[in-house]
Structure formats: structure tokens, C-alpha cells
């Protein structure tokens, strides 16, 4: 049997994943809804004073989007594992890490990108400070791919389990801590009038590193859990 080129395989995989998401496009709104609910809870819990909300706005939006991403992680391999196409992927002659990178990219594109787009709205709900309006989406743009890549490795480790929700959170959160610190930290530093380029650069460096290493780690983890 002749197998096509790797590029063609990646393109086919991306097309397939996008089609699957499109067929269930109602679900795509779930992470946004979740983040919106979480953000709406804070004024209810803390009171509506704009000053107080402004102080915590960036951090709350960051945490809400992180949690929404955590909930969405489960769908990364779930249906592919259940219908067996994940094993097909592992057995395919093309480099598994590259195929997984495509899957993660599509997943980020369909779950995290909408969250970034609505993040100004979430910020507005909490009276986000004026200078942060541009910075928060930028920080999220650097942080969310990193969250998706790190999360994918942990999802690959728990792929065969029925009830992996709590365990997945336990595995993922320690890895998310530095991303959260630098992402939300950049916003807080900007709000306090401090230089904020360094944490963003650190996020960028980590993202480049993760872009290369995380798909490899994800492939290795998947091979372990499907063996």
C-alpha cells in the first residue's frame, strides 16, 4: 500500500477535525459560556464596586479562560479514542508528533481562539483598566497555545480512562502555574506601571520551546497509554 505525503495527511486531518467541529458547532460555544458564567460570579460574590473589580479583572479573566480551556481539553482525544481513529493515527506511517500538532492546533483554533476574541468583553464586565485592553488579549494569545500544548500531553496520558476529569485537572494545574503567573503577572505589572515586556518574552520563549517539544512528548505519552 502506498501512503500519501505527510503534508497531505496533515491537511486531511485538519480538514476532518474542522468538519467534525463544524457538525457540532453548538458545542463550540460551551467554553465561552463557561468563562462568561465564571466571570459573572465574581461581581456577585465580591460586590459591584468598579475599583475593586478593576484590581482583579485581569487575573479573573485569565483564570476563567484557563478553567474553560481545562474543561475543553477532555474533547481533544475523547471521540477519536472512542471510535478508534486515534489508534489509526498512532499506526499511520507519518510522524505521530506532527499529526498531533495539527490536532492540537485545530483544537486551540476552535476552543481557545473564540475565548481570546471574547476576552475584551469579559474584561469590560469587570471594568478592566484602560491600558490593559490591548495587553490582555496579547498575553492570552501567547499563553493559551502554551496551555493547549501542555494540556495535550496530560490528556494523552489519561486517554483511556472513563472518569478522568478530576485527575486531569490535578495533572495539568501544576504545569499551568508558571503560565498563569507570567500571563496574569504581565497584566498586573502593566496595571501597576511596571515594565511588563519580560514576562511576555518569557511566555513567548516557553511557547516556542513547547511548540517543538510538546508534540513529541504528547506522541510518547499517547504511545504509552495505548500500548
Amino acid at each position: 500500500m502506498r501512503s500519501g505525503s505527510t503534508a497531505a495527511a496533515c491537511a486531511a486531518l485538519v480538514r476532518r477535525d474542522l468538519t467534525l467541529v463544524w457538525r457540532r458547532r453548538g458545542d463550540a460555544a460551551n467554553p465561552i459560556l463557561f468563562a462568561l458564567i465564571v466571570v459573572a460570579l465574581f461581581p456577585l460574590a465580591l460586590g459591584p464596586e468598579p475599583e475593586q473589580l478593576r484590581r482583579i479583572a485581569a487575573g479573573v479573566v485569565f483564570v476563567a479562560i484557563l478553567l474553560a480551556g481545562l474543561l475543553a481539553l477532555d474533547t481533544l482525544f475523547r471521540s477519536d479514542y472512542e471510535d478508534g481513529s486515534l489508534e489509526q493515527l498512532v499506526l499511520s506511517p507519518h510522524p505521530l508528533s506532527l499529526l498531533l500538532a495539527c490536532k492540537i492546533a485545530v483544537h486551540w483554533f476552535t476552543t481557545a481562539l473564540p475565548l481570546i476574541i471574547v476576552s475584551p468583553l469579559l474584561g469590560e464586565l469587570l471594568h478592566l483598566a484602560e491600558p490593559l485592553r490591548g495587553l490582555l488579549p496579547l498575553a492570552l494569545l501567547l499563553a493559551t497555545p502554551l496551555l493547549s500544548l501542555l494540556g495535550a500531553v496530560c490528556v494523552a496520558l489519561t486517554v483511556g480512562m472513563y472518569r478522568s476529569g478530576m485527575l486531569l485537572a490535578l495533572l495539568v494545574l501544576p504545569l499551568y502555574v508558571p503560565v498563569l503567573i507570567f500571563g496574569a503577572g504581565a497584566c498586573n505589572a502593566a496595571q501597576a506601571g511596571l515594565p511588563f515586556a519580560a514576562p511576555l518574552l518569557w511566555l513567548g520563549a516557553a511557547l516556542v520551546l513547547a511548540l517543538v517539544l510538546a508534540p513529541l512528548a504528547c506522541a510518547a505519552a499517547l504511545r504509552i497509554s495505548l500500548s
Binding site: P174, F182, L194, A217, A221
Partner: peptide, 23 residues
């Protein structure tokens, strides 16, 4: 495998937490 990922994570956490603490 998770333990190995963690060993990469420990210095990063330490570094980021130190930075956060100075902030």
C-alpha cells in the same frame, strides 16, 4: 512519564514563583 515532565516543571515553577513574589 509524568514525573519526568514534572522534573522539567520544578525549576520553572520555582523561577516563576520567585518572580511573582518580587512583583
Amino acid at each position: 512519564f509524568l514525573a519526568l515532565i514534572g522534573i522539567v516543571n520544578i525549576p520553572i515553577v520555582h523561577f516563576s514563583v520567585n518572580w511573582w513574589n518580587t512583583l
